[in-house]
């Protein structure tokens, strides 16, 4: 039994979108789909600060599925196509089961982490890229970050963490006090997104 989680060091994140690209490549995401995104906390547009020089203020928040301990999505799925993996605590998706009702998207408080394939998935390249056993994308089903289940189940780490040049991301077992993520959470101050929603996310933003 484990509870996989991630820490994201907002003091290290430079908003380079390498994680966005790593996720897209490794999971062979269709055009227009992003499972993790870089949000700018600051001005009205991406990469713009709030305030006026020299008092500008800006921070990046990377956003993907929070793999909540108390997920709002799994409860409402009428067929159990989205479910919490009992072994790892990861919130997973069964594309073959999803009926495309988008109830999970309505229930999830984290705006836009779940995405629907609104048409037949199209790709920039003619061949599939990334992990060989990443599940094939389907039209009219909901999908999202799985903590790279195809990688982590083989002892690898999620693609976004691997490629992060600032080493802002760490991933591991939150139930294991000696894991890197547990140590970081114990030693650093952190925030959780929309903590008052009661979802108990497994993603911790180090501040």
């Amino acid at each position: 039994m484990a509870r996989y989680g991630m820490t994201i060091d907002t003091k290290r994140c430079v908003g380079c979108n390498a994680c966005t690209v790593a996720c897209k490549i490794n999971n062979n995401l269709p055009n227009g789909i992003m499972w993790t995104r870089v949000l700018t906390e600051g001005g009205d547009a991406p990469d713009t600060p709030a305030g006026v020089f020299p008092n500008g203020k800006m921070r990046y928040v990377t956003l993907s599925c929070q793999h909540c301990e108390n997920p709002a999505c799994t409860k409402v799925c009428p067929v159990g196509a989205t479910y919490k993996d009992p072994e790892t605590g990861v919130v997973r998706q069964d594309y073959d089961k999803c009926i495309g009702c988008r109830m999970c998207m309505a229930a999830c408080p984290y705006t836009g982490v779940r995405s629907f394939n609104w048409e037949e998935p199209a790709y920039a390249l003619e061949y599939a890229v990334g992990d060989a056993d990443a599940p094939e994308h389907q039209k009219h089903v909901v999908e999202k970050c799985t903590f790279c289940y195809q990688r982590t189940s083989q002892g690898k780490t999620p693609a976004c963490m691997d490629l992060c040049p600032a080493r802002a991301r760490n991933w591991g077992d939150l139930d294991d006090p000696s894991s890197k993520v547990s140590e970081l959470i114990a030693s650093r101050s952190y925030q959780q997104l929309l903590a008052d929603e009661g979802t108990r996310p497994s993603v911790y933003y180090l501040v």
Binding site: I33, M34, R37, L39, P46, T48, V61, G112, L193
Partner: peptide, 9 residues
């Protein structure tokens, strides 16, 4: 709920 700007598709 989360209204911070990002690149949209």
């Amino acid at each position: 709920n989360v209204d911070m700007p990002f690149a949209m598709t």
